[in-house]
Design a protein around this nucleic acid. Structure first.
Lengths: 294, 294
DNA sequence: TCTATGCTTAAGTTTTTCTAATGTGAAATC
DNA sequence: GATTTCACATTAGAAAAACTTAAGCATAGA
């Protein structure tokens, strides 16, 4: 025996319970046309009309009334089943999967504030380059620098960022032409698309060509690029979010005329169900607060 | 609260019950890769592993075992609900929606055989040019001439057909060149893509050009084309299935060297659930028998 | 060690589903 | 009784989901 498209049954349930395609559409975050089409498709499959369409409201037909309680019950079971699975197995420990550079430069310096607010939650930070397998339960949540496309996961935009030209105070004099100063310093770069792109844009802007290998100091980790820059070894191309504290303390300076928006952005990502966990809600709130207080 | 993709839950149920992705794939008429992907997607959504993968078999994990009974129950409700709706409201009456020409030339001459076999089923034939709305319950089943694409409906190929050059015996002499004989007769055609195409192909074959309007007798119904041809008013382009009885009786002849397969085919179509109805099963069997006995 | 089996992965295609824009008709308002 | 408004229907085109094919991989069993 063949079931109709399952999605159409879900839409039917919502439409029937609300007595309106429009409200169902709002509840399900789709357009009203989507509901209309799914209901029609369901009716075609079943070979009968489920709703009487009146101008201001819709009513279930006899068949519709017959169908609804079964469908409702079915979805209750689905919900309950999923809920059981999605319960937090370890409410007192929060495991975060974070990019190493972000962990070092951003999260670690601030995390004590979260710990102070919620001393009963033990935070563990797992620095890893790629999004960890949530399946295995190794992480509860991930903070990623990307485009927000994490198939199967829920994700939420945290903040954007810019690439800045940073250096130890005095190394560059912004009042003098930048071109010559760039040529006479080491250029410290992270091996990442945004940094490479930013250097390219800067070179174009300055009409700089033929910058040779020795000029560049390539480092595989933004945290180390910052360290090298802090130590005055050259000019670094760094993300604003990561050097915020150093700028505030005057340990680094940035060139006022250079700033390139990153292609990527910071996202909070994880399985949908995790976002209902108490510890995750607390962390999310704290995190958004940290970003907004900058 | 957000449910995972519903399809993945269905696949999970089958895979869990069968203990094998491969068997689930067979049962669901998809490839095993599809199952694998859906299960992975479900696991990603839930953020936990549901199956332990061993080489020859898979086992549910603790979480998987927790989930299965809920999902199973949910689908039982869905099935039951749909089953209730899909019950035959009128088991003693069979309403067929059929193209007018097919009804006249094919179905009506044969339907008495079905009536004799099943005298307790009252057949009603509704000739209509387009596929009727099954939603309103006006028809139980449709016989269509098309490509088998009836979205939302189940459809089943019944037979193919060919376009033939038919005429009253004696009107055309197959032993003489066809070209001149075509030129000197009226050409009777149905206004339908297959007939128009077939005439085009014939003209190309005979290198016939400049056949003028008066040559053609255009009639909007294949049954009437046959009548005109039977009356000796000209040469008709007709489908084999529709003129079978006339050929057998010698009332019509066909040119032995011309035969063009139709683009379209005959399909039996209707809502999936209707195919479980007793009266529909009987009719389907009879219909297939009729086509195969030709 | 070799082979067969069943799951995984990747790439490309097809199908489904969605949105945006527009149409329609009956109630509500003026 | 004209006009507006509101909710649903329809369409075409875009986006996303799901499927298939064709590989790859690991292991049990010969």
């Amino acid at each position: 025996m063949q079931l109709p498209p399952l999605k159409s049954l879900l839409y039917f349930k919502h439409a029937a319970e609300l007595g309106s395609f429009k409200l169902a559409a709002e509840q399900l975050y789709v357009t009203q046309a989507a509901i209309s089409q799914q209901i029609r498709s369901l009716e075609t499959h079943l070979g009968c009309v489920l709703f009487e369409r009146h101008t201001r409201k819709i009513c279930l037909t006899a068949k519709g009334k017959l169908l609804l309680p079964h469908i409702r019950k079915a979805f209750e079971y689905l919900h309950h089943g999923v809920q059981v699975i999605e319960e937090d197995p370890q409410p007192a420990g929060l495991n975060l999967s974070v990019l190493p550079s972000f962990a070092t430069c951003w999260l670690l310096p601030r995390i004590s504030s979260f710990q102070r607010q919620h001393p009963n939650i033990r935070v563990r930070i797992d620095p890893s380059d790629s999004l960890v397998d949530f399946d295995a339960g190794e992480a509860d949540l991930g903070i990623r620098f990307g485009k927000g496309h994490y198939p199967g996961l829920h994700s939420e935009l945290l903040a954007s960022d810019d690439m800045l030209l940073a250096y130890k105070p005095g190394l560059i004099d912004p009042s003098k032409p930048l071109k010559e100063q760039i040529k006479s310093n080491h250029l410290i770069m992270d091996i990442c698309p945004d940094a490479e792109r930013a250097w390219g844009i800067l070179f174009d802007k300055l009409a700089l060509t033929g910058v040779h290998e020795p000029h560049f100091l390539e480092i595989d980790n933004a945290a180390l690029v910052m360290q090298a820059t802090l130590a005055g070894q050259g000019v670094g191309m760094l993300r604003r979010q990561l050097i915020q504290p150093q700028l505030a303390l005057g340990q680094l300076e940035i060139h006022p005329e250079f700033e390139i928006a990153c292609d990527y952005q910071y996202y909070l990502a994880g399985p949908v169900g995790h976002f209902n966990w108490h510890k995750v809600k607390l962390f999310r709130t704290w995190l958004l607060g940290q970003f907004n207080s900058l």
